[in-house]
Structures are given as structure tokens and as C-alpha cells.
Design a protein around this nucleic acid. Sequence first.
DNA 1: GCCTTTGACTAATGTATATTAGCAAGCGCA
DNA 2: TGCGCTTGCTAATATACATTAGTCAAAGGC
Lengths: 368, 368
Amino acid sequence: MSEPTELRDPPGASRRRKPAGKPKGRVTMTDIARAAGCSQATVSFVLNNSPGIRLSQQTRDRVIEAARALGYSPPVFSALRPPVTPFEGLDGVIGFAVDQLATSPEAVVAIEGARQASWNAGNVLLVAQTMGDAVMEPRAIQALTRRGISALIYMTIFTREIAAPDFLYSLDIPVILLNCYTADYAFPAVVPSEIAGGQSATRHLIAHGHRRIATITGEPWMQAAQDRLKGYRRALATADIPFDPELVVEGDWSASAGYAATVKLLGLKERPTAIFCQNDRTAIGCYEALKEAGLHIPQDISVVGYDDEEIARHLFPPLTTSILPHLAMGQWAIEQLETPPTPGRGRYPITKLECPLVERESVADVKG
Amino acid sequence: MSEPTELRDPPGASRRRKPAGKPKGRVTMTDIARAAGCSQATVSFVLNNSPGIRLSQQTRDRVIEAARALGYSPPVFSALRPPVTPFEGLDGVIGFAVDQLATSPEAVVAIEGARQASWNAGNVLLVAQTMGDAVMEPRAIQALTRRGISALIYMTIFTREIAAPDFLYSLDIPVILLNCYTADYAFPAVVPSEIAGGQSATRHLIAHGHRRIATITGEPWMQAAQDRLKGYRRALATADIPFDPELVVEGDWSASAGYAATVKLLGLKERPTAIFCQNDRTAIGCYEALKEAGLHIPQDISVVGYDDEEIARHLFPPLTTSILPHLAMGQWAIEQLETPPTPGRGRYPITKLECPLVERESVADVKG
DNA sequence: GCCTTTGACTAATGTATATTAGCAAGCGCA
DNA sequence: TGCGCTTGCTAATATACATTAGTCAAAGGC
């Protein structure tokens, strides 16, 4: 207490502490007060509607007016990240935007992967749905970004190339694409390796001695269908099995298409000994047609699916299928944030994650 | 201003200003610091996971321990008072907190219901997972509330009574409970009407002429299991069918328990003609046992399930089951927000929504 | 014309948290 | 031995909002 005056800097001196050119990151009550020509206290009273305080309606209106004009929002402490956040700890809140949540379980699985990976670091995931709607998508993402998230994961239900909405480019936080990618490789992106998946499913059949392997595709315009087919052809080529167009039947991911396609295949002069259904639903229809024809799986004919949907486990016999790596993709996305490889928005290669095959009981060695 | 020294109290003097015997209304970081034997700053670092700060794991653990023990919850900046909200402009964002997202589809369905209902009004739903963790739950909800959401929906995966965390009470936005409720009825809450569901499932069997109806329960300590059983007994009583304890077998929601229970039921001197499985998984095991015994569904014996899981449709024969009204519950929650009946936190009755029965092909008239 | 009251507001201060600077101990090393 | 570096933490301070205790001017009372 000998020199109390030493303790106090002249008022205003401290203001220069923040050297950054950015004077304000947020609108505060003080700003509103200045705009409305009153004190910060008055603003506090108005915005809190404090009981027992008497203020003229004019003043109240002026304050509200100003608050609205300046876009005041209550304090978000986590949003006060220093201008150049070195991304070590990556605290806080990570946004996860997805077009649909309910239509298929993959989104939930990816979210779960991201959550698990965030958990250790104590980060919270905030999920918003965009519904792929041009009006709502910006609002949904704004609901996240405006609130001070420290990174955004942007996921689509179907694997595809997207034209990223403009605002993704103008965000100043890391953006990771999950199950989609942009043509300009502007963001780190991760997708399942469908080609490798189709290849390993087919290779699995080949390893069991099959040489006459049919496949039932999905809707041909979908990336996943094309890639799975590509993998199928590649596996055939690798094993020196000639490609027979007769053995490729177009489906549409549905069980009924699987049924019809299988009937068609069974009508072939030289029947396949194995069928690679490019998703599990198709396999359901395939099973049905096979059973109707009096064929036994896998003794008479082997079947593999794709996607490892819940039902694959409950079919009879349980279906050998490929797991979509959405859990791993979610984790991968978070890991990208932990290692700070954001060297000025360069070009990122698209990461492809494997679709491991789960062997169950629908594949056997070829007869004969 | 003649006596500037008067302005500066010696540090600590100001502490005595608050004369009230109550030293603290809330747990602050300073309290935690004292308990953990460190400084308030350290607590701040730990709880915020501040980037670029290095602390020993021990210290972090001690702080988290203490925070948990003292029941710390971060300050809630209200910003927007209910009575006269100055800015409807602060775009409608509704928070949806759920303990688990991935473990079962119900949460996703409820979210979808809430989303659909919000959509028209142009509101955005932000979803956070709490994982039922004492440390993470406040953080997750904080991630929502701090960001100025205009309402919070709080959901649990299992239907149950909860002790709502303190901070739920101190929020000044509407809070709706979904699939759970508090003993003090402090919040509007909605749950499935499991009793009515169990009753209507059983009644359905009675309507088909069955009188000897068995049931396989879930884990007995779970609310849902108790209520479904209660509904079963009620339906029996209403139809003047005596209750036979022999026909009630305890399961645990799993297929294998369903299998074992069915085997036990088939060993009875007087076999049941119908089995009410209290969830679909149980029914899977039940189907299995029945088929092994050479019985045909529904000709020889009828089966109903509960939950309408995806698989119910794909069983053979497709399973008659009750739909959990999570979609409707999500919608209901949003509707409560639209009609603003929040007259000073009164007592709200628990709303129960029906579980409608979907008839498929696993029930037939009793033979003879 | 001098108090008193009241309405409308502010200065000053309090509270809780975030952040910066720096201290002290330990370690590798020249 | 002593220099520089890292690690792990605290003291001090800044920031943002809430609240208390007023100030000040106008409107009465006497």
C-alpha cells in the first residue's frame, strides 16, 4: 500500500493493449448506448426489462432500435476467440450441418463418430439440418456460424460433388466436407472408397472360387453406383475374368428392383454362381427371388450386399456386406481440426476411407 | 473528488459490501478454485479448454472433479426476457438437447417431428448431445443457451422421471421435456402412453378371439416395461379374462431373451394362443423359437411386438406392432412453443401420446 | 421563492469470467 | 556454473454486464 497510485494506469492506457487492428469483435451494450445516446446502464435496464426501473418509452424505443440496428446479441464468450486462433486446443463448439438427418442412419453414424472424437477434447457438437433447401440452408448454417462455432463440418447424405454455397468460402473457420467434395478441392473432404469397396466385395467372391459373378447396380446416375460398378470391373480385370455385360443388371437400390433383377439373372442361359448386390435392400429382393426359385444361399448361390444396414444381420442367412465407414469419416473430420493443416486454403486431396467387408454366411465356395 | 484516496478501498474491503448472510447463490469459478486448491484463472482455463494453455492432467482432473462435486454451472446470460422480447428478429433458433443420438432411432424421429413442425415457421433446430454426463451436459446445453436460443427441448432416450439439472430452472426461455418428466411438473412434458399401448396391443389379440395371451416383458425396472405390462393386465381385466402369472415371462428387451421366454411358454401345459412381445427385438427371438417348434405364424400362434422398428416390416410374416409416437412428440413439443402458455412456471400435466397399432400379418383369429 | 417530490436517467461500483504477463522450478547443455 | 528453454501455474488486469446510489431538472406544495 505504499504506492497505491502505481497500481492504476491512467485510464485509457490499457486500451492499447489489444494491438490488433480489430477494435471490435462484437456489439456490446456500450456500443448501443453510444448509438442511442444514453448510458450502458440504461441499455442494460431496457434489454433486461429490469423490474422497478422507470424509463420513458422514447428511450426504450431508441435503445431497442439501436440494438436491432447494430445486431446486438447476448455475450458469447466462446466467440471471443483472439483474432488469430492458433488451432491447438480447438475449444468449444463445432458445427455439424447435414442435409437430412432422418432419412437414413448414415448421418447419425457420422455424427456419432465426430462426437466420439470431440469428446476427449471436451468439445461440443451442434447439429443443424439444412434439408438441402436454398432458403433454409443459409439460415441453418448461420444459426451455427453466427454463434461462434470454431469449425464447421458439412455433410451430405448421398456421396456427391457439390457446388459449395458461397458463404462456405467466406467463413473464417475451418470447413470440412463429409461425404461430399467440391470440384475446386477448396476444403478437406472425406468420402467412402466405393471403388475399393466394390472391388473387395467382388474379390471376396473370386477368392471363394466364383468366376461367373453378377452384379445388380443402384440408380446409375448416382456416384456410389458408378463407383461400386467400377470396383466390380476392376476386381474382375485383376483376376483376368472377362467382363460380361449380361451379368450387370441395372437396379435402383430397392428390394423390388433386386427381385426383378435376380429373376432376370436366373433366366440367363449360363447362370451366375454369385451375385454382388450393390446395396442391402437390393439383396433383400434378391434373397426373395432366389428362395422362390428353390435355390439355397449360399450352397447354390452366393450373395453379398453393401451398406451393412441393420437388416443384413437379420436376414437368413445373415448377409455378407460392406460397412460404410461413416463412423470413421466423422472421426476423421474432427482429427483434421486437431492437426492444424490449414495452410491458407490450398487444395486438398479427397480422402477416401475403406469400406471393410463383414463376412457373414451368405457366401460359400463355388460348387463343383 | 477532493479526497481521491477515499475512492480506493484497500483490496478486500469491498468484499464486505454484500452484508447478507448468504455468501453465495451460485457456485463460481472462485469456489471451484478454492476447492481444487488453485486459482480462478486455472479453473477458467480448464473449463473453457482454452487453447494454448498447458496444465498438468492432475490439475485438470482436480478442477473437473471439484466442478462436478460442487455442481458448477456456467452463468446464464438471459439477454431476452420473455415478457416483452425486444427482438423477435434474433432469428428463431430452438435448441434440442438429447442424451444420446446414435443408440436408437427414436431420438432422430423426435427431432424430425420437431423439425417438420418448426419448418413452416422458418425456425431452425440446433441439436446437441449431452451423453448424460455431469460435466458435458451443462457444456452442451450451454453451447445452446449461450447462443441465444429461444426455447429448449430436453429429451431422454428412455422414458423416465428425471431430476432436472438446476440450470434448467434458471433458464428464462421455455423448456419442454420430451420422453421424460420431473416430479415437480415444472415443465410441459410429453411421453408415450405405454399403458394405453400395451392395452391396445392386448385388446387387438382379444378382438381376434384369443383368451390365452402370454406376454414377454422388458427389463422390469424400466418404466416402459412396467407400463406395457400394466396395459396388458388392464386389457385382460376389461375383457374379464383372468390374469395368469404363468403367462408373464420376464425378458430384457433382447432377442435371445425372447427366444428363451418363448421356449418356456411353449413348455406350458396349456399353451398360449398368442404372445405379446413387449418390443420388436423380443419378437425376433420369439419368431425364431416358434419356427423351430414347427409352429406357423399366425395360423398356429399370433404374435404382436412393440416399437415398430424397421425390422418389423421385414420379418416373415411382417409383425403387427405398436408405433412409438416420437414423431408426434417432437411436433407436440414445438406446438407448445407456438401457443405461449407459460403463465409463471406453474404445474403442467404430463401429456401422453398414443402408440397406434400397425396391423401386419402376424395376428390371426384363434383356431377352433 | 424555498423546500420537497418525482420522473428519467447516469456514474460508480460490484460480480463473474477471460486473458495477459510473468514467476519459479526443473532440465539440458556448453 | 550458469544460460536459455520449457512446463505449470498465479497475480493482476481487462471486459461485459448488473445494480446501487445517487444526480438533475421539472413539477408541485407552502
